[in-house]
């Protein structure tokens, strides 16, 4: 039982980090970025290229991954989303197509063969027959630090409060002299960075594969849908619900049903409580 708890906690931490960038864009720009999974994939592949192909140190790998996440986030926003901004449905369609295009690009460059990544931190934590990799524990800690940092940034810095203002009341923000486009751009950049960072851990945890963007995207979608619009705390709670649900399903029910409950959760919540379980709260 204790191992299920520890693993559930570690997995949930990773899921929270995976989802938070997606949540941010949704709360600030009111659009669903279905190309978000690509940031995760990009993070993994760039880290791999830097560390395992070019032989850079790990910190260089992180820098490379995060920089490319930011660049791609900014590009998605300026080239695609800004042109379609008033129409969330158009953004949803266009980003889905973009995701498939990026998937093809990754296949073209890296081939469709799955690649294993070396863990960021070596070693295994063992306790009473429980084993969890240090890599996953580090991912969990990084996730908490990143989320706490984000919360502080949004609540206590000028820039962060401006972003929050746009997310709560766009017109009001414009009146008080905030440029929503600039705030949106910043959000997409932060989202890209968070996605890529999560991607490095996700990929070391699993593997690199051109279709690896789908799984995390579904988790992120579930977190947003169940958690309601853009609450960081809500996302954190839901990430834990999903993480624990998956771990319990695998350990106690049947491993092959793991993803089924996440899908059912999305459907049920959207049909029964379209505003999410936690409704709208501050960012």
């Amino acid at each position: 039982m204790i191992n299920v708890l520890i693993q559930g906690l570690a997995l949930s931490g990773l899921y929270a980090l995976l989802a938070v960038g997606f949540t941010m864009i949704f709360s600030v720009g009111r659009v669903l970025n279905l190309a978000y999974g690509v940031y995760i994939m990009l993070g993994g592949y760039m880290y791999y290229t830097a560390v395992q192909v070019l032989g850079l140190p790990k910190i260089g790998g992180f820098a490379f991954a995060i920089a490319s996440g930011i660049a791609f986030g900014v590009l998605t926003y300026t080239i695609l989303v800004r042109r379609l901004e008033d129409n969330p449905v158009a953004v949803e369609i266009a980003t889905l197509i973009l995701a498939v295009v990026m998937q093809s690009l990754i296949i073209l460059i890296y081939r469709p063969v799955s690649k294993s990544m070396w863990p960021v931190v070596q070693g295994v934590f063992r306790y009473e027959g429980v084993f969890v990799t240090y890599n996953l524990l580090v991912a969990m800690v990084v996730s908490w630090v990143a989320l706490a940092g984000l919360l502080l940034f949004v609540r206590y810095t000028r820039y962060g409060r401006a972003i929050q203002a746009v997310s709560m009341d766009r017109k009001g923000a414009v009146i008080s002299g905030i440029d929503p486009r600039q705030m949106n751009l910043a959000t997409w950049a932060i989202s890209g960075a968070l996605g890529a960072l999560a991607g490095v851990f996700f990929a070391t945890y699993t593997q690199l594969n051109p279709s690896m963007w789908v799984g995390p995207l579904i988790v992120a979608v579930a977190v947003v849908v169940v958690g309601g619009i853009g609450s960081i705390i809500g996302s954190l709670i839901v990430a834990h619900i999903i993480g624990f649900m998956e771990t319990f399903t695998t350990a106690l029910i049947a491993a092959e049903l793991r993803g089924v409950f996440t899908m059912i959760l999305i459907i049920v919540v959207l049909v029964v409580a379209p505003k999410g379980l936690f409704g709208r709260s501050e960012l």
């Binding site: 084993f131 969890v132 491993a255």
Partner: peptide, 12 residues
């Protein structure tokens, strides 16, 4: 029996 899309084998 595990799902081929499973990414996390620690519980298994």
């Amino acid at each position: 029996v595990y799902d081929i899309n499973a990414v996390d084998f620690a519980p298994i």
